[in-house]
Design a protein around this nucleic acid. Structure first.
Lengths: 250, 250
DNA sequence: TGCTATAAATGACGATTCGTCAAAAATAGT
DNA sequence: ACTATTTTTGACGAATCGTCATTTATAGCA
């Protein structure tokens, strides 16, 4: 009556295979060079199967972006567990964002692509909802850090702001810095000599000082904090960067 | 011996026609729907002629982005002439950025597209150099404002920063806010209820306070400043927004 | 072990899109 | 009117997209 073949996790596994293959391709050849035909050729599956997972190229790109955001969410969760005062935890979180941008530049740049109309217009609704949910999940630990700071009286913005607004402002800063500095930097005079790791920290300190988030940037040993973050929380990521030949400037 | 037909400004005029047509198309149908074939059909020129101006679709998009940046540069120049203290002029400038993003959302979003690899990889080198030069031109008046503030002793960052770094930090903040809030906002909980005009100003005040850029946010009548900016400098733009049915929340 | 009903995978196909280039049209001097 | 040269044209081939009729694989059943 009902004999059939269903896949349980095999489906997810295969979806991951496809995404992994697409990421490899993009990393080597660039987004522009990725076509569904070429991707299929590099895959042990057929075109129909790929289209069974993704409604099209844009949907696949957004899925890849979301996959990266899950990794980032995990890093954020880890940052939230950092054993320190709220301002230290906040810095740890945005340090994680910068680390992700350096570690997976291709996937980070997909966030830009995802915010582009071309994708917004063609990716599947389900995938876009997933993207928005992930944004919410990313924001959450940050809001909690600011909340705990507020409870402890360590956060006193000069103008009335909700926790969401405070989080959003920091997110904007961090996003902007990563987006602008992840692109080729040498040729633009305005960005010449800027390092993503330094400017992320500079921007954050200025912002947190502006929020009256104590202790202020000149009342604490922040370089010691960076060292602790690097060894205690993100040792794995630092090692991965080292394997890529990247050494942080801070 | 040498009889021929050359175009002087007619060439530029036609290039502008093409861009205008492309912008109309994108505004109505979206970037994804724009194809060279359709664009040519909507144009009194042939495909070869269009390709005589632009090396391809990406090149055209970047040209459109650059065209918008020229308008923005003009707005920045106007902002720099604002008769006020440095912090007022700085706010005026980033107010202009926000205004541009609201006034020409399509063109603002093209900046994101322009930073995407697909474009970076396919647009012509000349167009990309133009883009970088325009970025430099945009930054310049901002640097000068911070320089004058520094001379007057009104700018005392808690950590040592060059004028370029200070400018970059503010640019990042502004760029991030505009980019994140220009996209559809309702569905993401993290951005719910956020207004681009409010958050731009909030972010800027926090940042400038963090830079010890006097007078601080709570030591001056900034709402009066906004009114002056709206009537004295950007009256035209405010009217254009009004015609679009948009009224600023501030 | 066959047999069957259904799910899943396949890849050939038509429709678009891109960018090119040989041919046609336009132009200014003679 | 003729000519040398620039400019425009749009038909073309290659590449890409997404679909869908067909084929293959599988699980239960006799």
């Amino acid at each position: 009556m009902s004999p059939r073949t269903l896949d349980a996790d095999a489906f997810d596994q295969r979806e991951n295979d496809i995404l992994e293959c697409a990421l490899n391709f993009i990393s080597q050849e660039g987004i522009a060079a990725l076509t569904m035909d070429k991707l299929v050729k590099a895959l042990p599956y057929s075109k129909g199967t790929v289209y069974n997972h993704f409604s099209g190229k844009e949907d696949l790109l957004l899925a890849l972006c979301n996959r990266g955001m899950k990794i980032l969410a995990e890093m954020f969760d880890r940052a939230a567990t950092f054993d320190g005062i709220p301002r230290e935890r906040a810095l740890c979180m945005f340090f994680a964002y910068m680390l992700y941008a350096k570690l997976s530049p291709t996937q980070f740049m997909l966030v830009l692509t995802a915010k582009t109309d071309s994708v917004t217009e063609k990716a599947s609704v389900a995938r876009q909802n997933e993207h928005l949910e992930l944004e919410g999940r990313l924001i959450k630990p940050a809001v909690e850090i600011f909340a705990s700071a507020q409870e402890r009286g360590e956060l006193n913005p000069p103008i009335p702001l909700t926790l969401q607004q405070i989080t959003f402002i920091c997110w904007s800063q961090s996003f902007g810095t990563n987006a602008l500095l992840n692109a080729d930097t040498d040729r633009c005079s305005a960005r010449q000599g800027m390092l993503i790791e330094e400017e992320t920290m500079n921007g954050m300190h200025i912002l947190l000082d502006g929020l009256n988030f104590s202790p202020r940037s000149d009342q604490h040993d922040w370089s010691a904090l960076i060292e602790r973050i690097k060894t205690d929380i993100f040792q794995t990521e630092i090692q991965q960067l080292a394997q890529m030949g990247v050494v942080l400037a801070i």
